Simulated scan of single mutants.
Amino acid sequence: MTKFGYTLMSEQSGPRELVRYAAAAEDAGFDFEVCSDHFTPWLTSQGHSPYAWTVLGAVAQATSSVELMTYVTCPTMRYHPAVVAQQSATLQILSEGRFTLGLGSGENLNEHVIGEGWPSVQVRQLMLQEAIHLIRALHTGDLVTWEGDYFRVDSARIWDVPDQGVPIAVAVSGDSSIDKFSDHADHLIAVQPAAELIEQWDDAHAGDSRKIGQLAICWDPDEKAALERAHDQFRWFGGGWAVNADLPTPAGFEAASQFVRPEDVAETIPCGPDLDKIAASVKEYLDAGFTDVALVQVGDEGQTRFLDEAAGPLLEKLRAL
């Protein structure tokens, strides 16, 4: 059965608001909730970036049945993989088995803040492979001493480990990342409805797996207001992943996105009150083979109204697909 999720977008909302939205999204009928994990928002106008793990701990207590996921955490620079192993084990216990650890190779925007530079994508992927190995070893609850090319642990043990373990999903974007992570991850994360990506993953990955996508939408009764908000908050996406992963600051994203027009945003983000148009965009992911799709309702403004008025009818349309 296809699952539909709600995104706790930490770059556009404060921590208390995110917890409130999480409870409302569960009440509205979403199957799962994903939370972004940034140190810095992409654009200054977004204005937020609370600590995702604290937010998720609170969300685990404010909800009872909805699944939870990081979308995504980078366990290689700002966090040591041993820390992510402890964070995710604790969250799995707090949520009573509802958590999936979503991982990625990171963005310069968040990871440069520790002052250790920004490696090439090839190095970042090798670091992520090693990090996943360590996280899985520590999730056994055994005492681990290990040294690799990028990380070491010395007599490390996670004392509170969940009986059911922690499933791991990894963000991939093409042949290289699929080759590196299909044997390391349980599930796939991707943000484009590319059928060839799903086919390559299924060919390379042993066993069943979820394919978890994400789509930005901007529902509002006023289509003009929706488009203005989407352009203000989400025009940063226009450069594509190859650019976005390497820009270091919101000022860089402001400069890179200065020529992105509202009509450019409208081509990618369905804006306005038309739920059928939103459903048609989601269907592209289903047709490509995704098993899960998380929606991003753009902007803090209007979240409560979206959850109260539009989420239920939209989910009905999506499940009818």
Rank of each mutant, 00 (worst) to 15 (best):
K3F: 09
S10G: 14
E11R: 08
G14P: 07
G14M: 11
P15R: 06
R16I: 15
R20D: 15
R20V: 11
E26L: 06
S36A: 15
W42A: 08
H48D: 09
P50W: 07
Y51F: 15
W53P: 01
Q61F: 13
S65H: 12
V72W: 06
V72Y: 04
C74A: 12
T76F: 10
T76R: 07
T76P: 03
Q87M: 13
Q87T: 07
G97T: 01
F99R: 01
L101Q: 06
L103T: 01
S105R: 09
L109V: 01
Q122N: 14
Q125Y: 11
I132C: 02
L134H: 00
L138S: 08
L138P: 01
T140I: 09
T140L: 10
D142V: 10
D142R: 13
V144P: 01
E147F: 08
D154Q: 14
S155D: 15
G165S: 05
G165K: 05
I168S: 01
D175L: 11
I178S: 03
K180F: 13
S182K: 00
V191M: 11
P193S: 10
A195D: 09
D202H: 10
A204D: 00
D208Y: 10
K211T: 02
G213V: 04
K224F: 13
A225N: 04
A226P: 01
L227T: 05
R229P: 04
D232W: 12
R235E: 05
G238P: 00
G239N: 07
N244K: 06
P250V: 10
A251H: 08
F253S: 02
E254T: 12
V260P: 00
E263L: 10
E267P: 01
I269R: 01
C271H: 03
P273Q: 04
P273V: 04
S281K: 15
E284V: 09
D287T: 12
G289M: 02
D292K: 04
V293S: 00
A294Y: 04
L295D: 00
Q297A: 08
G299T: 06
D300I: 13
Q303T: 08
F306E: 03
D308V: 10
A310I: 03
L314Q: 00
R319G: 05
A320M: 05
